[in-house]
Amino acid sequence: MPSETPQAEVGPTGCPHRSGPHSAKGSLEKGSPEDKEAKEPLWIRPDAPSRCTWQLGRPASESPHHHTAPAKSPKILPDILKKIGDTPMVRINKIGKKFGLKCELLAKCEFFNAGGSVKDRISLRMIEDAERDGTLKPGDTIIEPTSGNTGIGLALAAAVRGYRCIIVMPEKMSSEKVDVLRALGAEIVRTPTNARFDSPESHVGVAWRLKNEIPNSHILDQYRNASNPLAHYDTTADEILQQCDGKLDMLVASVGTGGTITGIARKLKEKCPGCRIIGVDPEGSILAEPEELNQTEQTTYEVEGIGYDFIPTVLDRTVVDKWFKSNDEEAFTFARMLIAQEGLLCGGSAGSTVAVAVKAAQELQEGQRCVVILPDSVRNYMTKFLSDRWMLQKGFLKEEDLTEKKPWWWHLRVQELGLSAPLTVLPTITCGHTIEILREKGFDQAPVVDEAGVILGMVTLGNMLSSLLAGKVQPSDQVGKVIYKQFKQIRLTDTLGRLSHILEMDHFALVV
């Protein structure tokens, strides 16, 4: 994948999101292997301009796509893939009243899908469409860049269908997702969380590099694949309309690839034109409109599966009536509230959605109805927002919020430890010299600072030695090549209790 991002070429006709291997024109390309080798690009942008032909009021008969309808489940399912879809609609009884809503608040519980998330729908649909058009064949390999849930859905379907599955996901995604993927037989590649989507090191860039190296491999490409919004247009939206008897006044959905909100909203605009569509985008993402909503100094966020630093091709923002931004604290607070007060075992993005819903639905009156999409299960986040310690460490809970008995030293300040200034190293000294210094002084790690004293990161003896043994660096290389740029900081005025929580999850903390 090139470091400079080429513009994806656009073909003359058809839909841009065809499933299957992508040609340089962004659509299915038939021909000899030699032709494909000559024409197939190194990668295709996940934010390529959409060429979708959908228009409100256009006859369904003019759609270029294969459409399906929700099917009634048999008493005995032939395999677990038949437990994807037909998820329950559940009334939220307490939270709406707590925040003064007059309307009825309903939750579409997508964590009841077989793999635990709304992404099971698009995973199965992308595979079925690729099999139907002859792209996927027995023994082929599926590769997908994902925040985890699409990966789980694909790995689940691949396990049943017999495909090899490789999932490329950023490091910030939970260990629970990784464990589930491994249990399903998927191979996992992790990428830096802070890598831009168009960087060769991003999950998108690495996935395309693997595709170019592995024979008979395919990126189904949830960011561009029409099967993504079509899955929701054909099934999720129809289920909502049936469950609500066609009567709903507002739908609120958090947005990642945009397939969920695009597919549902398009069908609702056709069948229930008075329904307002509300999009939820986390602070630090750029999906919301108008652009002024996205202006923030924050560039990272903890909530998973929603928000991006690019506009995915499948996201149709014209069908969203209003956007709201959400933050991590309210997302996790509301997710825990949904679990504790409503018994809905949902993930953090569901918290984002409901946090926005109780604001947006203030305009609705008694007798009206708001539906929220709860995308995934708490299963993926047992060591994250479900953990009091994690919430404390991230600053989303305060010590006084917890009532468990603490040891005698818990409320003492870090400054009472009488710490001395640490050994520091410059980023320009060599790895070999740094190892000598650390061994001589008896230290395992040291902060790396520039000549102005600005902290650049941390270097550890173990990481340097393993990097040297693996051949990633040489003793003569500058130590700046092996620094940890993500590390926890703590102030002298913070409590030892807070430091204790940090050290339970990290090997060190830097006192500043």
Rank of each mutant, 00 (worst) to 15 (best):
P2G: 11
P2N: 15
S3H: 08
S3N: 15
E4Y: 10
E4G: 09
T5V: 02
Q7W: 02
E9V: 10
E9Y: 02
V10R: 09
G11F: 04
P12R: 12
T13A: 12
T13M: 02
G14R: 08
C15V: 08
P16T: 08
P16C: 02
P16N: 02
H17R: 08
H17W: 14
R18F: 08
R18H: 13
R18D: 14
R18W: 14
S19L: 05
S19G: 15
P21F: 02
P21R: 05
P21C: 15
P21Q: 02
H22Y: 08
H22M: 02
S23W: 13
S23A: 15
S23Y: 13
S23P: 12
A24L: 11
K25N: 13
K25S: 09
K25W: 02
G26Q: 04
S27N: 14
S27P: 07
S27R: 07
K30W: 09
G31V: 15
G31D: 13
G31I: 04
G31Y: 02
S32M: 02
P33Y: 09
P33R: 10
E34C: 04
E34W: 07
E34N: 02
D35C: 02
D35G: 11
D35K: 02
D35L: 06
K36Y: 09
A38W: 04
A38V: 14
A38C: 15
K39I: 06
K39D: 11
K39P: 15
L42W: 06
W43K: 02
I44Q: 13
I44V: 14
R45C: 02
S50P: 09
S50R: 06
G57C: 14
G57R: 12
R58F: 02
R58L: 13
R58P: 09
S61V: 06
S61Q: 12
S61N: 02
S61T: 14
E62F: 07
E62M: 11
S63Q: 02
S63M: 02
P64G: 02
P64I: 14
P64L: 07
H65R: 02
H66W: 09
H66V: 12
H66R: 09
H67I: 10
H67R: 13
H67W: 02
T68A: 13
T68Q: 14
A69H: 08
P70M: 15
K72A: 04
K72M: 02
K72S: 02
S73W: 09
K75W: 15
K75G: 14
I76R: 02
I76M: 15
I76N: 12
L77D: 02
D79Q: 08
D79C: 08
D79S: 12
I80S: 08
K82D: 02
K83I: 02
G85L: 02
G85Y: 04
T87S: 07
R91I: 07
R91L: 06
I92A: 02
N93C: 14
N93V: 02
N93M: 02
K94I: 05
K94W: 10
I95W: 02
G96S: 15
K97V: 07
F99W: 12
G100Q: 15
K102W: 05
E104C: 11
E104P: 05
L105I: 13
L105M: 05
L105V: 12
L105Y: 02
L106W: 11
L106H: 15
A107I: 06
K108G: 02
K108R: 02
E110H: 04
F112D: 02
F112C: 02
N113L: 02
A114W: 04
A114T: 15
G115R: 13
S117C: 06
K119I: 02
D120S: 07
D120Y: 15
D120F: 13
I122W: 02
I122T: 04
I122E: 04
I122R: 02
R125H: 10
R125G: 08
M126W: 07
I127R: 05
I127L: 09
E128L: 11
D129G: 02
A130P: 02
E131S: 12
E131W: 02
E131L: 05
R132F: 08
R132W: 04
D133S: 02
D133C: 07
D133A: 02
T135Y: 13
K137S: 05
P138W: 11
G139F: 11
G139L: 07
D140H: 02
T141A: 12
I143C: 02
P145N: 02
P145I: 02
G148A: 13
N149V: 02
T150L: 04
G151M: 02
G151F: 06
I152V: 08
G153S: 12
A155K: 02
A155T: 10
L156Y: 04
A157L: 02
A158S: 12
A159Y: 08
V160H: 04
V160Q: 14
G162T: 05
G162S: 02
Y163W: 04
R164L: 08
R164M: 02
C165G: 09
I166G: 02
I166N: 08
I166C: 02
I167L: 10
I167S: 12
M169L: 11
M173G: 05
M173V: 06
S174F: 04
S174H: 02
S175M: 02
V178R: 15
V180K: 04
V180I: 02
V180A: 10
L181P: 02
R182N: 02
A183F: 02
L184H: 06
G185A: 09
A186C: 02
A186Y: 02
A186V: 07
A186G: 06
A186L: 02
E187D: 13
E187C: 10
E187G: 07
E187L: 04
R190F: 02
P192Y: 07
N194G: 05
A195W: 09
R196I: 09
D198W: 07
S199E: 05
P200W: 09
S202C: 04
S202G: 06
V206T: 02
A207N: 02
W208V: 08
R209T: 06
L210K: 08
L210S: 02
L210N: 05
K211W: 06
K211H: 02
K211Y: 06
K211V: 15
N212T: 11
N212C: 11
E213S: 06
E213L: 07
I214K: 02
N216S: 12
N216Q: 09
S217R: 04
S217C: 05
S217D: 02
I219F: 05
L220N: 02
L220W: 07
L220T: 02
L220M: 02
D221K: 02
D221H: 06
D221L: 04
Q222F: 05
Q222S: 02
Y223N: 05
Y223C: 08
R224Y: 02
R224C: 08
A226L: 07
A226F: 02
N228H: 07
L230V: 14
L230R: 06
A231S: 06
A231V: 09
Y233W: 13
Y233E: 04
Y233R: 02
D234F: 07
T235E: 11
T235Q: 15
T235P: 02
T235W: 08
T235L: 10
T236V: 02
T236L: 07
A237V: 13
D238K: 08
D238S: 12
I240H: 13
I240V: 13
L241H: 02
Q243A: 08
Q243W: 05
Q243R: 11
D245R: 02
D245V: 09
K247I: 13
K247Q: 13
L248H: 02
L248W: 02
L248C: 09
M250W: 02
M250V: 05
M250R: 05
M250G: 02
M250E: 02
M250S: 02
L251G: 02
L251R: 02
A253D: 09
S254V: 11
S254W: 02
S254E: 02
S254T: 07
S254Q: 11
V255W: 04
V255C: 11
T257D: 02
T257C: 02
G258W: 02
T260H: 12
T260Y: 02
T260E: 02
T260I: 08
T260V: 07
I261E: 06
I261W: 04
G263L: 04
A265V: 06
R266P: 02
K267Q: 12
K267W: 07
L268R: 12
K269I: 02
K269W: 02
E270L: 10
E270N: 06
E270T: 02
K271A: 09
K271Y: 06
K271W: 08
C272K: 04
C272N: 04
C272Q: 02
P273D: 11
P273K: 12
P273N: 06
P273L: 10
G274F: 14
G274M: 15
C275E: 02
C275Y: 02
